[in-house]
Each structure stands twice: as C-alpha cells, then as structure tokens.
Design a protein around this nucleic acid. Sequence first.
DNA 1: TCCATATTTCGATGATCGTCGAATTATGGA
DNA 2: TCCATAATTCGACGATCATCGAAATATGGA
Lengths: 139, 139
Amino acid sequence: MESQIALVPAPASAVDRLSALAQTSRLNVFRLLVRIGPEGLRASDIAARLAIPPATLSTHLRILTGAGLLNLKAASRERVYAVRFEAMRELIAYLLEDCCQGSAEVCTPLAGLLASQAACCGPAPKETTHEAPARSRRR
Amino acid sequence: MESQIALVPAPASAVDRLSALAQTSRLNVFRLLVRIGPEGLRASDIAARLAIPPATLSTHLRILTGAGLLNLKAASRERVYAVRFEAMRELIAYLLEDCCQGSAEVCTPLAGLLASQAACCGPAPKETTHEAPARSRRR
DNA sequence: TCCATATTTCGATGATCGTCGAATTATGGA
DNA sequence: TCCATAATTCGACGATCATCGAAATATGGA
C-alpha cells in the first residue's frame, strides 16, 4: 500500500487561486488570456508577447493551471492555454460570500449574480478537461 | 533634500491586493468582515473570533489596510476595521478588463457591471479616510 | 527513422513571507 | 496623575517563492 497515495489532485483552494494571481508575471499572463478569450493562446505566443523566458513561463503556467484558473485546451506539441472563467466566478463568489449577512437592503447580491451564468463568456464553451494537477512523479 | 522622499504612500496595486488576500489568515479576516458589512469590527473582536494572536493579527490588518482592502473607521483606543467594497470592485474590474476583447457577443460586460454602484453595499457608506500606508519611520 | 522545435523539469540562488513572544506605545477612566 | 487595557512594533526563526540556464522530454514532419 501507499502506492496510490497523493496522486489525487487536491482541489484548488481560494488561497491557491489568489496566490497564483498575486504575482506580476502571472497576473499579466492571466489578464492577457482574459483579453484573448476562450480561444486561448499557445505558450510560445504568451512568452513572446510578454517577454518571459520559456522556463519561467512554464512554471507560471503550471501554477495558474494547477490553481484551476487556466485550461490546457490542446496538448499536442503546441499547448494552448485559456482562462477558465468558471474559476473566476467561483473565486469572486467565495470572496463575497454572505456579504453583509445577506441583508439585501445593504448589499445587492453580487455573489449570486456572479454565480449565474449571465456572467462572463457564457456557459463555458466546450472544453477539454481542465487538465492539470494529477501530477505523479513520473520517470 | 531627500527628506520628504518615500513618505507618500504608493497606490496599492492589484498585486498588492491579491497578495494580501492570498493568505489563509488574512482571507479569513477579510471574509469575516465581508459578512459583517460596513459597520466593521474591532481588532480584538476579530482576534477573538478567529483565534489569532494580537501581534499576528496586527500585521495582517496592516497589510490588508495598506492594500486598500480594509478601512480603519475609528481610531481611538479601540480600532474598527471594515471592508472597502470599492477596492473589491476595482480589483475585479481590473482582473476582467477588456474581457474577450470587449466582444459583448462572447462576454457579458461583467467588469462594467461591477464598476457600477449597483454592486455591493451601495455607494460606499460614509467613511473616515481609508487610513493607511503613509507610515514614516517615527521615533 | 531521425531531426527540428515546443515545452517542461531540474537545480541552485537570492529574496520575501508568516508567525508570535516580548517590549512599546496610546487611550480613557478612576 | 496613574493604571489597566487595546493595539502595534521589534526581532528572529524557518519556510516558501521567483527566476532562469541547462538538460530532458515529447511531437510532428521529412
């Protein structure tokens, strides 16, 4: 026993997501991909546009993807990353959860509004799986 | 010369705000204050509710306030902190700026929605100033 | 099959961060 | 005035992080 342990990816927490965004390079990557939209961008294109060395960018993409903020859409030789808008909705809803004790007099239910699919980029365009963490030590 | 330098508080960046939130204790403090709403809570009450030692909490409150996320509402012996909802609106708008290149067909203008005062906790209840960073080395 | 290319992992360095006890600094009442 | 109390700063520890060159790993053609 002990063989299957720690292979299941821990669900990305709000702290994971906020940490992922709380870094200049990664925030730039994220915002670039927000602008680009659901089609996403190849890693090399991101590197070129933001002038980040490939090795560094790769680390950042791994962290953003592991946090569930990005989506690896196509995995051939060239990899395309796109924003998972659903993750943003979840994050914002979590941050503002039960705002003002839910008193609608004080607080327009912003969180609920965000949770609705009326939010950003519609009902999530069909995606490949939110590929990511399940990293087991290979080799 | 050189005497007045670096006393003007640098405006809190998005990275500052995200970093402030990207930490378990601080995120708990923030979410507690979101629930509480505009009235805010005394430092000692926060410490009691979240079981955080005063010295640690003080550091966290300074970071959250310095990032513009909290507001020191009353400064007598007991200090009352409250969420600056305006800061959250700004942050979310920044994160989703120019989403999908502004194409409304793809993207409901979430950022614009948040920027409106229809958002959370109305047009910001009258506050004392967003007291914070201007810290000069005293003593 | 073999190579060119896209991307990731390894590894090491310097820098920043979280924590909290002890000392310090206000403040408001007796 | 003096004290009890609220809150902050100081200081130091260990832990985590960003960076990026070099090496390793895929992939898709020729």
